[in-house]
């Protein structure tokens, strides 16, 4: 049996935000405005997404499904770029994060749909859109963190990397420590999530399924599958992004090219 919370019940939960706001005002912590904006944004975004999903799920149109997924990828690509302290100049600023994130997420989502879940048709929006969304969201975080670490590392340790190049090291040899740091930075969230899952935190997706009346062991299986897929999508996208970043931050004469970063 599932109990559908009505709109009233949802609004009641927002009472706690008002409690927070009161605390902030009383203690002059100054987060009322930010929190209010975030809460309103979330409400509007989720309400809209609910409407869109209802339309897409009932229509089962391929065009609509891929259109929605394309839009999600485009926005996530922008988000990767926006999170960069130092951006690659020109097309690469948007392109590197967006394409690698899309690649990792698409490969893994298609695999899951075709091989594991097998809905009819394979792109059935009820499965494709939420899965793709979870892959994108996590790949986005990982790639944004990884690229940020890479450009930060090369900027901060330029002299050391150049010293290595001066001994006749290739750009790949000299960039290896920076690549390793970037990969680690990008994978930390998913590794932490896998470590803590089930003990410290019940994942949101699984909790949601159980609250919505699903059998817990089915919810667990979905969650496990999704976590593996997320790790796969993030890892693949991240590795390609870091390699692309190194190619962009160096040139074929094995020089460091910080001039290809803007801002």
């Amino acid at each position: 049996m599932t109990i559908d919370p009505g709109n009233g019940a949802v609004m009641l939960a927002a009472i706690f935000l008002i409690v927070n706001a009161a605390l902030s005002l009383a203690l002059q912590l100054g987060f009322v405005r930010q929190m209010a904006i975030a809460a309103v944004r979330m409400t509007v975004q989720l309400a809209l997404v609910g409407l869109v999903l209802e339309v897409v799920l009932t229509s089962a149109s391929a065009w609509l499904t891929f259109g929605v997924m394309g839009f999600m990828a485009a926005v996530a690509g922008y988000e990767v770029m926006a999170r960069q302290e130092r951006r690659f100049s020109g097309f690469w600023g948007y392109g590197l994060g967006a394409t690698t994130m899309l690649m990792g997420s698409a490969v893994v989502t298609i695999f899951a749909l075709v091989v594991q879940i097998g809905p009819e048709p394979w792109y059935a929006p009820r499965y494709a859109i939420p899965l793709f969304g979870m892959m994108l969201g996590n790949a986005m975080t990982g790639i944004a963190l990884g690229l940020n670490a890479l450009t930060g590392e090369v900027t901060a340790r330029r002299r050391g990397i150049e010293a290595h190049l001066l001994t006749g090291a290739t750009r790949w040899e000299a960039m290896k420590p920076a690549m390793r740091r970037a990969a680690t930075a990008g994978l930390v969230p998913i590794i932490n999530a896998m470590t803590a899952t089930g003990i410290i935190a019940l994942p949101g997706m699984m909790t949601g399924q159980i609250l919505a009346g699903a059998d817990p062991s089915q919810a667990v299986r979905y969650q496990l599958m999704v976590m593996f897929l997320i790790a796969g999508a993030t890892g693949m996208g991240l590795v390609v992004a870091v390699i692309g970043g190194v190619i962009r931050l160096t040139d074929n004469r094995h020089r460091i090219r910080l001039d290809r970063l803007s801002g």
Partner: peptide, 17 residues
């Protein structure tokens, strides 16, 4: 890399990796 194995440059403040 081949060039830099023959022509060796040591900066005023050497870097360390």
């Amino acid at each position: 890399p081949e060039w830099r194995r023959r022509v060796i440059y040591i900066p005023a403040e050497p870097g360390w990796w």
